[in-house]
Structure formats: C-alpha cells, structure tokens
Simulated assay, not measured.
Amino acid sequence: MQIRKITKKENVAMAHVIRSSLEAYGLALPGTVYYDANLETLSASYDHEGCAYYVLIDGNSVLGGAGYDRFVGFESCCEIQKLYVSETVRGHGYGKQLLLFVMEQAQKAGYDHCYIETHDQLQEALGLYKKLGFQEIEKPEGVVHSTMNRFLIKNLESNV
C-alpha cells in the first residue's frame, strides 16, 4: 500500500469509492459530496496552492483517498475533505492512516488547524476523529455540504 497525490487516471476510481461509501451509509443525498460537480476531476480540483488530494493505492487499485484545502471559517485552517476508503478495506486502519498523513501534509503546508465535517450515520469516522483529538464545534458559517450535521476542529500543533 502507498499514499500519493492523485493523478488524472485515478479520478473515476476515487469518485466510485466516495459514492459507494456514501450509498452504503444511506448518504447518497443532496447536500453531501455525492453530488459534488468536481468528483470526477479531483486531480484538477486540488491542483492549486494550499491544497492537495491523496489516494491510497494497492497495485493498480484505488482503495481510498483524502485531501485538504483552505477553510475560510477559521484563521490558518484547512478542511479535511473527501476522506473515504473502499468497503473492502474498511476497519483495517487505512482511514486513520490517510487522515494522519493528510494532517501531516497540511501542517507542512503551513496550516495550524484542521476542520472536518461528518454525519451521525458515519459513527466510525466520528469515533476516529474524536480519538485523534478533534473537538466538536457549532456549525460554522459557509458550510457547503448542508446535510452534514457534525463539525469538528483540531489544533495541528498538538498533533500528529
């Protein structure tokens, strides 16, 4: 297994991992990443300063991914985005591995905090975030994915 930046050839596979994950949890709904217009073009969407998207690869298979981008709701803060792993490897620590890697990269990029949003139906993810020191906060202004109902932040200096 390796984690590396997404390339154009992994876009469709990563979109499939994200959509199938949301379907499995009953969250293939408007107001979630499921309907993001850029889902099939993640490599281009994360090709600017202050952001990156990474995939978890095993051979030629895309098993998951996660990224970060600037979050304007808080000073020196990024948002962890589109953190999903394939059902075939869920429960084996790969989501945690991806999250830790992305937080480290965000910290190297100069961010002091990271924000993440999730949903009550994603209990495994919520448990992971809390275990890694994320603190729940009120819904910040400017939340794009209106179906998400849990919001967390972490100071990266006390991190990773």
Rank of each mutant, 00 (worst) to 15 (best):
Q2W: 11
Q2H: 06
I3T: 07
R4I: 01
R4K: 12
R4V: 02
R4L: 04
R4T: 06
K5T: 04
I6R: 00
T7P: 06
T7R: 06
K9Q: 11
E10D: 09
N11W: 07
N11H: 08
V12M: 12
A13M: 10
A15H: 05
H16T: 15
H16E: 15
V17Q: 14
I18G: 10
R19N: 09
R19W: 04
S20N: 13
L22D: 14
L22T: 10
L22A: 03
E23Q: 13
E23A: 06
Y25I: 10
Y25Q: 02
L27M: 12
A28T: 00
A28L: 10
P30V: 10
P30H: 14
G31H: 10
Y34R: 11
Y34V: 03
Y35R: 12
D36R: 10
D36M: 00
N38L: 07
L39P: 03
T41G: 02
T41A: 02
L42Y: 04
L42I: 03
L42H: 01
S43D: 09
S43C: 00
A44Q: 05
S45L: 11
S45T: 01
Y46M: 01
E49H: 03
G50H: 06
G50M: 03
G50R: 03
C51W: 01
A52Y: 09
A52M: 02
Y53N: 07
S61P: 03
S61V: 09
V62Y: 11
V62Q: 15
L63E: 14
L63A: 05
G64A: 11
G67P: 02
C78Y: 02
C78V: 01
L83C: 15
Y84K: 01
Y84G: 06
Y84S: 02
Y84N: 12
V85C: 08
V85S: 13
S86R: 02
E87P: 01
V89I: 15
H92K: 15
Y94D: 15
Y94T: 12
G95F: 10
Q97P: 04
L98A: 10
L98V: 07
L98Y: 01
L99Y: 03
L99K: 08
F101K: 09
V102T: 10
M103G: 14
Q105K: 15
A106C: 00
A106K: 00
H113G: 00
H113S: 13
C114N: 06
C114M: 11
I116P: 00
D120S: 02
Q121A: 15
Q121M: 12
L122Q: 05
E124A: 15
A125Q: 06
G127W: 03
G127F: 01
L128P: 11
L128K: 11
K130T: 15
K130R: 14
K130F: 03
K131E: 15
K131T: 13
K131D: 12
L132F: 07
F134A: 00
I137A: 11
P140S: 00
P140W: 10
P140D: 01
G142F: 04
